[in-house]
């Protein structure tokens, strides 16, 4: 079975800064993959290239921008328009075959039917983020890329959002998200990709990352990540010497 998304030898340079270096991985349909790493690791750059917002300096992404649903960190919504109007606008812009049916489907999936005619500016942060995700899904893309989807949400809102995103993966969609919240990655992702200084240092299930640093399945992934990054830094220094 071919991967839903294949990233090959992806590199991105901003002037002197090498933001991504030779990153390659696949994501299968139904997979929920977390991209984690310290600040400035290249997480957002990686996702924005996959979403078609930026062109890579080198490398390829198997899907075009129209095949990847994009959910930016800040809800990209028109606050003066209602939930349904936002969905309808992007359904038309995405040239969806039946925009009305697409709006109905997304209202159903996001459980926002009761709020359909409410202006987005009056919604809670959690509901705005649901609409934000719904806009990413309006064109029914096989791959969904989310940049820090749970940032600025309270715990209850986060819980509901992850239940929704988990449902998307179970419905055979390939979901790739970046997060600072490593606990969320441990809890919800089937696989994690660790980036640091633009390099991909790890790609595998959270349990494997835990074992890399001698922790068991009950270990704390955040602590494990810190130790993992420290070990890799020592190894890199030794290599340079």
């Amino acid at each position: 079975m071919s991967a839903a998304l294949s990233v090959r030898a992806l590199s991105k340079r901003f002037g002197e800064l090498q933001a991504l270096r030779d990153v390659s991985f696949d994501v299968d349909a139904g997979e929920l993959v977390a991209v984690i790493g310290p600040n400035g690791a290249g997480k957002t750059t990686l996702l924005s290239i996959i979403a078609g917002l930026q062109a890579p300096t080198a490398g390829t992404v198997s899907r075009g921008a129209d095949e990847v649903g994009w959910v930016p960190q800040q809800p990209a919504l028109y606050t003066k328009l209602s939930v349904a109007e936002n969905l309808a606008l992007f359904a038309h812009l995405e040239k969806v075959g039946d925009p009305r049916a697409a709006v109905e489907r997304m209202l159903e999936q996001t459980d926002l039917r009761d709020r359909a005619s409410e202006r987005v500016g009056r919604l809670s942060g959690g509901n705005r983020q649901r609409v934000n995700v719904a806009l990413g899904l309006i064109g029914d893309p096989p791959v969904l890329a989310l940049d820090e989807p749970s940032a600025a949400l309270d715990p209850a809102q986060r819980e509901r959002l992850w239940a929704f995103i988990g449902g998307l993966a179970r419905a055979e969609r390939a979901v790739l998200f970046s997060t600072h919240n490593v606990a969320e990655a441990q809890r919800y992702a089937g696989r994690v990709i660790v980036l640091a200084n633009g390099r991909m240092l790890f790609d595998g299930p959270p349990l494997v990352l835990l074992r890399e640093v001698g922790e068991d399945e009950h270990g704390d992934l955040e602590r494990a990540l810190v130790r993992f990054l420290a070990q890799r830094a020592v190894t890199a220094q030794a290599g340079e010497r």
Partner: peptide, 13 residues
Amino acid sequence: EEHALGRLVRGLV
């Protein structure tokens, strides 16, 4: 301001 620019120019418009 509405962060919609990125969403629009990634192929929609």
